[in-house]
Design a protein around this nucleic acid. Sequence first.
DNA 1: AACTTGACGGTCA
DNA 2: ATGACCGCCAAGT
Length: 111
Amino acid sequence: MQSDFFQRAYKVVQQIPPGKVTSYGAIARYLGAVKSARMVGWAMNASHSQPDIIPAHRVVNRNGMLTGKNFFGGSTIMQELLENEGLIIEDDKILNFKENFWDPMDELLKL
DNA sequence: AACTTGACGGTCA
DNA sequence: ATGACCGCCAAGT
């Protein structure tokens, strides 16, 4: 176990519905995190060794840019995964990002 | 123990 | 609108 922060971040990412995306900062804020959005990215980095499947491809930066695509082993893997879910990626950025944006807080309100 | 790097984000110039 | 800098916090070297 890395830290509660990591575990919570993973859970949030796993709860992201298909065809939706969120940002590192959104997760960090949801966790109430005093930590910075960078920590979320760090958690994703650790997700590689995590037994659980973390759809990190649904997590992008606040610009909707696939900043971590380079970490998916391939190069366009992340983009194809997102497109496979109905999202449209162009120039490594998500189109209609705002419309496809899913905030963990939204789920919290529903609960 | 100290310095550098990093899947970010916001503000300033 | 674009570019640069600072702040956050942990891990790697």
